[in-house]
Amino acid sequence: MEVLQLLISGMANGCVYGLVALGFVLIYKATEAVNFAQGDFMMLGAFVTLGFVNPEFMGIPFWLALPLVFLVMGTFGYLLDVIVLRAVFGQNQVAVIILTISLGFVLRFVAGLIWGHEPLSLHSPLALGDLRMGELVLGMADVAIIITTFVLTLLLWQFFQRTKIGLAMQAASQNQMAAYYMGIPVKRIHGLVWALAGIVAAVAGILYASKGAIDPNAGFIGIKAFAAAVIGGFGSLPGALMGGLIVGIIEPFAARYLPPGYSQIAPYALLIGVLLFRPHGLFAQVRVKKV
């Protein structure tokens, strides 16, 4: 029973990591930029929702606020690409890494200014309390998170398979030059990918906040999500989700069965192990640069 309980809560955490990881894999695949601020995007998404929904702020009903949140976060992602990231397009990766880390610093500060540094809880319809079945205590939020994540994944998959924009995004991520010559507006596609990453981050943020409180430092889970993305193989969307689940599930089990202190290093130890033995992740195939 205990195992099942750990598994469910681990999976729920893992879904959040997975969604954040999904965000930066999306961006990485399309633009080769690595968004080290994706965790902070998630934090921002949660706070924007909180700002719309919570009675002490605007108090709009959740389901009405949801499209607004997506609009705000999507616009934010799009503008960020247009204003900031387009300027460093094609520059070396150190520049992009530092740029996005700095962006994270700024977002954290701004969120602290607006919403304060005390942990706040979101009035979310997903915060459903616990379900008791004998010895088993199931967090209903956990179950809801898992379901939402799978629905979102299905939607994204359909989006990439079926819609014109989704196909264009795929093309642009596989061969930018070829896509450009085929008349795909690569730059605009980049903006849209950032917008999509913003929306995915918003969903991740809402899920994260439904499990507990949110504060400006919540973005630090981005680091675990990084581990997830690398474990899954940085270029693969399903890999990112799987990596997230792996990290999420390892954590509670390590906390339960390993001596204290060892549990928090488990994800990073796993990350380093994966990098040593499968440098391109568990779910990736590799090609060599052509001369």
Partner: peptide
């Protein structure tokens, strides 16, 4: 709280955009 890192972050962003 966070002012120092935020200012540093803004400086970084400006440098990377305008004086790489």
């Amino acid at each position: 709280p966070g002012l120092e890192t935020a200012v540093f972050g803004v400086i970084m962003i400006l440098f990377i955009l305008f004086e790489p």
